[in-house]
């Protein structure tokens, strides 16, 4: 208990690169997801089975959400935004597994995701609107708004990161404290609450990212 719970827990190193538990957990998540989709979608059929239908429903639901927010064809945004939601749901729900810690409970993972969202927003915006029209929106409604707009971009990315990290880290702390104080059975309601929190945080993170992307491509006013 002497270790700082906010510090990354390194399991091993590969050359000069230390490998933390969050990275390993992420690899496991990636492997599980890869195996799942490969098994279910090895031979995708029009007459889908139950598992394929579930995956199709998940993908189509995400696509409908993206279409509802962005207002255009969701498939170009699906790889980033869909993967974001799926990864966050699975990563947040890792908390319910005994001995596992969600990678989103450490600041590096939300920071990486927020950074990717930040970059993706500009990539989508530049691709959709062109360089000058996209960059012009930073000086709108007048050039004096440029610093505030840049600050807004940074702070919203930072808030995205902090919101996810804070919620998952605090939930992990609450679980640890309750388990320490009351034993094994009492944390179960908190774990159920953790499932809800995990899904909600994944949804919030993804919806906000989608809103930012929509604003960048010119479909959403922020």
């Amino acid at each position: 208990m002497d270790r700082n719970p906010l510090a990354p827990e390194f399991l091993f190193t590969i050359g000069p690169v230390p490998i933390s538990r969050a990275v390993v957990t992420t690899w496991v998540i990636m492997a599980v997801l890869l195996i799942l989709v490969r098994v279910v979608l090895r031979r995708p059929r029009v007459q889908a089975g139950a598992a394929q239908t579930v995956l199709e429903i998940v993908v189509e639901t995400i696509g409908q959400q993206i279409r509802a927010i962005v207002g255009r064809d969701p498939w170009p945004f699906m790889p980033i935004l869909g993967t974001l939601f799926i990864f966050l749901v699975v990563a947040n729900l890792v908390a319910v597994l005994p001995g596992a810690t969600p990678p989103t409970g450490h600041i590096e993972t939300p920071a990486a995701l927020a950074t990717i969202v930040f970059v993706s927003v500009h990539v989508f915006g530049l691709r959709a609107r062109g360089a000058l029209p996209y960059l012009r929106h930073y000086i709108e409604p007048n050039p004096f708004m440029l610093p505030l707009n840049i600050l807004s971009e940074l702070t919203r990315t930072f808030s995205l990161m902090i919101r996810l990290f804070g919620n998952m880290m605090s939930h992990e702390f609450v679980l640890a404290i309750v388990a320490f104080l009351a034993g094994l059975l009492l944390p179960i309601p908190f774990m159920l609450l953790g499932i809800l929190i995990g899904i909600i945080q994944a949804y919030i993170f993804t919806v906000l990212a989608t809103v930012y992307v929509g604003a960048a491509v010119g479909s959403v006013e922020t």
Binding site: V17, V23, T26, T109, A112
Partner: peptide
């Protein structure tokens, strides 16, 4: 804050 983890998580994602 571990930058290696940040980079690895970004790459992983």
């Amino acid at each position: 804050f571990d930058w290696w983890t940040l980079a690895l998580q970004a790459v992983n994602f």
